[in-house]
Design a protein around this nucleic acid. Structure first.
Lengths: 179, 179
DNA sequence: GGTTTCATGTAACATGTTACATGATTCT
DNA sequence: AGAATCATGTAACATGTTACATGAAACC
């Protein structure tokens, strides 16, 4: 099994909650994990095939009217998932094109730079807004989820909120500095 | 020219400050840009060749005792750089393996999760410490750099500081919540 | 009847990382 | 003399993204 393809763990984690199709997995990534994880079809489908071959997932027998292919986690997959939790988590190298631009922008007209920062701020304000909505939705729907799971979901949401708030503060501070 | 390879702009930005060799560029990335950008040799050298072919950089005539190949930016490279500043900056999709683990960790023993967060906190504290040192170094060495450049360098440092501080606050909050 | 969403997949392309190879120079 | 750093580069591998192809079903 590949050493670095972390997508398999995202998929195992999702299937560990609920058997799903490739399409469902993509939706889950887009709707729920989007703050810290992303996948695309061109990656999901080949990965599912690999995982089938590895025996970490298997195809569920379809009902009569079922058209989609649903996968579920195997006990081998559960083991792989458990093992992953104990592994060290390395931070992936950061790459912020925005910061790269800013770093090199001393020859650019000040207004352009300020515009760029304002835009960046707007993007983060919008994301923050979405996180806040998600946090409220979680509070509302909390009965449907075990309190243990809710705790961890909330923690990832809080992470997004604190990080976007910090970014917005940085934008304000930096706009001041540059003016 | 490739649409997405942003490394060329990192390289152009560096050469726009000072003609450098591939090795110098790598060092600059490691020492100065590391908070928001990274490059490796396996990427830099082929990219330099491509850029030579594109005409955005050129080889400087070597002095007698010079062994390293120094590149400098051409006027075409300057244009490419200027053009890049006006382009829209898209945020790159996030991928945090740490958050992915946390999200799925409701079946894991609480102590393991807490340990994982403590470790994460430690990593960010260490990085924060480094940023603070870099900030002080910048204050000290500020005469060597134009005040315009210093402003932008400082802004990127502040971004690292605020973001690590936010992460540490999140760790403390989350440790409380989980206990 | 037309648009959107569901659903699966491949091929081409682009990007990024690691390991290896080589040899000079500088430091201890 | 040996270790560390300087310096350039390639090959293999791994990963990730986009565009394309196809067709059914649900919605308006």
């Amino acid at each position: 099994m590949s050493v670095k393809n972390k997508s398999i763990y995202a998929i195992l984690g999702i299937l560990n909650i609920l058997p799903s199709s490739g399409y469902d997995i993509k939706k889950y990534c887009d709707n729920v994990l989007s703050g810290f994880w992303n996948e695309n079809f061109g990656h999901i489908y080949p990965t599912l095939k690999k995982m089938l071959a590895d025996g970490t997932i298997e195809i569920m027998s379809k009902g009569k009217n079922e058209k989609k292919i649903q996968y579920k986690i195997t006990s081998r997959g559960e083991q792989a998932l458990d093992h992953w939790f104990l592994e060290e988590t390395k931070l992936q190298p950061v790459r912020s094109e925005f910061m790269l631009k800013l770093f090199f922008s001393s020859h650019q007209p000040k207004e352009k730079v300020l515009q760029m920062i304002e835009k960046y701020k707007k993007v983060h304000q919008d994301k923050l807004e979405k996180y806040r909505v998600m946090e409220m939705d979680l509070e509302k729907g909390i009965e449907d989820i075990s309190s243990e799971r809710a705790k961890y979901i909330k923690a990832t949401l809080r992470s997004g909120i604190l990080s976007h708030e910090a970014t917005i503060r940085w934008c304000n501070e930096t706009i001041e500095e540059i003016c």
